[in-house]
Write a protein that binds this DNA or RNA. Structure first.
Lengths: 215, 215
DNA sequence: TAGATTGTTAATCGATTAACAATC
DNA sequence: TAGATTGTTAATCGATTAACAATC
């Protein structure tokens, strides 16, 4: 099946553009709170210190209507278009694998819910940890992970395990039909095509900070 | 003072390259554990699924010696060069501002120590939280932040506060002489030149995941 | 030696920015 | 109308990749 021009513009957004969306959303909600009903790409660009053409292109890729010269875009519509595009409004279930300090930290973070991510269980190998709950989310033994994922058709796995274990966990998740992995372990994961791996490299960020400080 | 060619190559690494460094480090340590004394850029590239010329360029920018055709680079030397470059070996003190779920999560994460980051205190506005400790790190009232930073000459601030408060906190940190900010709030911070802001956008990552799932 | 590997220079690729005509 | 703002096409910029001569 060819996907050259299917009418929807879903494929046109680059990763960078997609990552700017939450900023746009925040900016729009601020404008809405102020009572503004339309907003120009130019003003968004100024607020976020981005190029205005860039903002216009990003908006064009997700917005269902065109902007009007002079007034700009309708705020409400743009908000719901971005939310739809990001898939914020339909809840997606996720599990956390590795309930060490970072894993439990994420379990305790309620803000993910706002972005449509609902963490339903955590798994760990260490039986000092399993059996407990954090933020009302149960921590099970790792052996229960595969049946749990299959039964609940979990689409997202969050790996906060040590890097030595990460690839094996990823393989296991893939077998269960997971479709996206949020990887906090410092390894490149090998996954089949169609499975998205989003790497969250706190170590890389730390490298940036450290290097700047050390000059 | 002109900085065209000062002999050190510190300025030549791009952000992307710097972010690859932790992966190289991990890869090298794995090789070292296997008893290998030299390693080729080609083999690192294969392991990490990167282009070999890219790896060679990255290494050239940080490594003090040149590689030898056929054998490659000395593992030990490369490890210490990268560690030096990233500034892993000298401890840098940091504070956390905002001790909500994410902030306490980071407080509890002991892995940062391995990368040279030592979190010495946290601050919050909520007096249900202040006075406690997490992982032996005290949580103080926000009013004590400025004197603490000045007294201890803290170079790094980690913002895990709500986005409404983030800019004000950043301004305050800058006044105290902070040199880098690790920003987990979803706003672009305005800081003077010379202060690094490293944005950690969990929301942007979530946008990636959600969008992929929703297809 | 032959071959793996290096480092450099040039080509490619993709994202951002600039220029500009169209429009409310 | 005039001016702000839009959307598009072309130019720029920067990172990655390819080609290739040099070397252990």
């Amino acid at each position: 099946m060819d996907r050259k021009n299917t009418g929807d513009k879903a494929d046109t957004l680059t990763i960078q553009a997609l990552q700017r969306m939450p900023y746009y959303l925040h900016c729009l909600e601020k404008a809405k709170a102020k009572g503004e009903t339309t907003i120009s790409a130019t003003s968004i660009a100024n607020e976020l210190k981005l190029n205005d053409v860039l903002v216009r292109k990003d908006i064009a890729a997700v917005c269902s209507t065109k902007g009007k010269p002079k007034s700009g875009f309708p705020v409400d519509e743009l908000i719901s278009d971005i939310e739809d595009y990001m898939g914020i409004n339909d809840k997606k279930e996720a599990i956390i694998v590795g309930a060490g300090s970072l894993g439990r930290a994420l379990l305790g973070n309620r803000e993910f819910e706002e972005y449509g991510l609902s963490i339903t269980a955590a798994f760990d190998i260490n039986n000092d940890i399993t059996g407990r709950t954090v933020n009302n989310i149960p921590i099970f033994d790792i052996s229960e992970m595969e049946p749990f994922c299959v039964e609940h058709k979990i689409p997202i796995g969050i790996i906060t395990a040590p890097m030595e274990a990460a690839q094996e966990i990823a393989d296991s998740l893939v077998r269960c039909g997971i479709r996206a992995i949020w990887n906090f372990a410092l390894v490149r994961l090998n996954v089949p095509e169609g499975v998205l791996v989003q790497n969250e490299n706190l170590a890389s960020s730390l490298a940036m900070l450290s290097h700047h400080i050390t000059k």
